[in-house]
C-alpha cells in the first residue's frame, strides 16, 4: 500500500471519513504522519474557533474589569481569576461533569457533553479570561493624550472607543496576544486527555500519537511527529499574527513600531 492510499484512507479519519478501522499491525511511518496530521484538524478547529469567539468576549471582559461600576468590575475580575488561576486540565474535568449534570436536567445541553462543543466552550472561556487580562493591561496603558485628543475632537462614547481606544489597546496588546494564541493551540491537545471522551476513534493529534505509541510500544516516533506538526502550526500563527501586527502599526514611524518580541505570554 503506497502512501497515497494511506492519505486517501486516513487523511480525514479524525472527522469520521475514510477507513473505519485504524491500522492495527505493520505500522508505517506514513500512517503515523497521516493520521496524526488528520488529528491536527481538530486542534486547528478548536484553536481557531475558540480564538475568534474568545477575542470578542475578551474585549468585553477587559472593558468590564476597567469599568467604573463596581459590580461589573468585580464579576469580570473574578471570571479572569478563576480561569487563570486554575489548571486547564482541571477545568476540562469539571466542565465535563457540569455538562453531564446539566444534560440530565435539561436535554438541551446534550450537545455539550461531546468534545466538539463542550471542550470548545471551555477553551473559549479560558482564552477569553487570559486575553481579557492582556487587553485589560493594554487598556490601562493607552496614553492619556490620545483620549484627551479624542475628547477635543468631540468624539464621544462608542465612536471614541471604536476609533481611538480599541485600536490602540490592540496594538499594545498584540505581542502578548500572539503568545496567548500559540498557547491556546497547544492547550487544545488536552481536550481528549482529560474528561472528554473520544468518539469512534475520532480524536485530535495527541489522541492518534498516543494510539500509535500504544500500539507500537515505541513513543519515539509518534510524539516527535506530533511535535513537528505543532512547530509548523506555531510558525504559521507567528506569521499570520505578524502580518496583523504590521497592519496595526502601519501608521507609526519605523523605529517606534512595537516589535513582535516573543515575550513571555500572560500564563496558561
Amino acid at each position: 500500500m503506497s502512501c497515497w492510499d494511506t492519505i486517501a484512507d486516513y487523511g480525514l479519519r479524525s472527522l469520521g471519513y475514510g477507513e473505519r478501522l485504524l491500522p492495527r499491525s505493520d505500522f508505517t511511518l506514513c500512517q503515523q504522519v497521516v493520521l496524526i496530521g488528520s488529528g491536527m484538524l481538530w486542534n486547528i478547529y478548536f484553536g481557531t474557533l475558540a480564538l475568534i469567539a474568545g477575542f470578542v468576549m475578551a474585549t468585553a471582559v477587559a472593558m468590564g474589569k476597567a469599568a467604573r461600576n463596581p459590580v461589573i468590575a468585580k464579576i469580570s475580575a473574578w471570571f479572569i481569576f478563576i480561569f487563570r488561576g486554575s489548571p486547564l486540565f482541571i477545568q476540562f474535568f469539571f466542565a465535563y461533569f457540569l455538562f453531564l449534570s446539566l444534560k440530565n436536567a435539561v436535554p438541551f445541553f446534550t450537545v455539550l457533553t461531546s468534545a466538539w462543543a463542550g471542550a470548545l466552550v471551555v477553551l473559549f472561556l479560558n482564552t477569553a479570561a487570559y486575553s481579557g487580562e492582556i487587553f485589560y493591561g493594554a487598556l490601562q496603558s493607552v496614553p492619556k493624550g490620545e483620549a484627551e485628543a479624542a475628547d477635543a475632537y468631540g468624539f464621544g462614547g462608542w465612536k471614541k472607543f471604536r476609533k481611538i481606544t480599541w485600536p490602540t489597546m490592540l496594538r499594545l496588546a498584540w505581542p502578548a496576544y500572539t503568545n496567548e494564541a500559540i498557547f491556546l493551540f497547544h492547550a487544545t491537545t488536552l481536550v481528549f486527555f482529560s474528561g472528554f471522551p473520544a468518539q469512534s476513534q475520532r480524536g485530535d493529534a495527541l489522541y492518534y500519537a498516543n494510539y500509535f505509541a500504544d500500539k507500537t510500544f515505541n513513543p519515539f516516533v509518534p510524539y516527535p511527529v506530533l511535535a513537528g506538526y505543532f512547530i509548523l502550526l506555531t510558525l504559521v500563527i507567528i506569521g499570520l499574527f505578524g502580518l496583523i501586527n504590521r497592519r496595526l502599526n502601519r501608521h507609526l514611524p519605523q523605529e517606534r513600531r512595537s516589535r513582535m518580541q516573543m515575550r513571555m505570554p500572560v500564563l496558561r
Binding site: I182, H186, A187, T189, L190, F193, L206, A209, N210, A213, P219, F220, Y223, P224, L226, A227, F230, I231, T234, L235, M262
Partner: peptide
C-alpha cells in the same frame, strides 16, 4: 521547545 505543547514533551 516553545513550539511544542508541553504535554507532548512529557509523554516521551
Amino acid at each position: 521547545v516553545r513550539g511544542v505543547p508541553d504535554i507532548a514533551f512529557f509523554l516521551f
